[in-house]
């Protein structure tokens, strides 16, 4: 790929190289690290693996779905206008079959100690304020989140609240 570097300063060139590295990192097969300072690689890997996704509570999601359905029922949108210009299909992104499989990518280092790959980043997920991760299922976290918010008297709810209190004390 030809990069028009002639009219770019050093910062822009490095930004371009870092951008290409991020593209590969987020595609779960980091490569092309040459020219990317090690501290930026480490920071990018940390952010990719550490920044959680937040998911709304299922109660909120369902409530808003109902609200949107009500609004939609009252709407009469005009028919879509004819498409302008030439329509060119863009191929859907294909999942990389090698991505996230096996331990090959786990903190591998070259002989000079530089990281060449990161573990397949599975960022944590927060559902309505409750952290989950690959270690537990989304459904499990949802149930725990729901139970914490409902003053039910059943043994499971009491147990969750007791554990919650014990950890926060």
């Amino acid at each position: 790929m030809t990069v028009p570097f002639a009219d770019r300063d050093g910062g822009e060139i490095e930004a371009f190289i870092v951008d290409r590295y991020l593209e590969s990192l987020l595609a779960r097969h980091p490569a092309d690290v040459e020219g990317v300072p090690i501290e930026l690689r480490a920071t990018a890997q940390r952010l990719a693996a550490g920044l959680p996704r937040h998911h709304p509570s299922f109660r909120f999601e369902e409530r808003l779905a109902l609200r949107l359905a009500e609004v939609a029922a009252q709407m009469r949108l005009p028919a879509a206008a004819g498409a302008e210009g030439i329509v060119v299909p863009i191929a859907a992104r294909r999942p990389d079959p090698a991505a996230g499989t096996g331990p090959a990518g786990d903190d591998a280092e070259t002989r000079d100690g530089r990281p060449t790959a990161v573990r397949p980043a599975v960022p944590p997920v927060v559902i309505g304020g409750v952290l989950t991760s690959a270690a537990i299922s989304l459904a499990g976290a949802a149930i725990v989140a729901w139970r914490r918010g409902h003053p039910a008297g059943d043994p499971m709810a009491r147990a969750i609240r007791a554990v919650s209190r014990a950890r926060t004390n």
Binding site: P52, G129, L131, S133, A135, I136, A141, V144, V163, R167
Partner: peptide, 16 residues
């Protein structure tokens, strides 16, 4: 109020 350890499975506490 975000990453809340209350949802942690007991066996995975250290990892969580």
């Amino acid at each position: 109020d975000l990453p809340d350890a209350d949802a942690v499975a007991p066996g995975d506490l250290a990892a969580e």
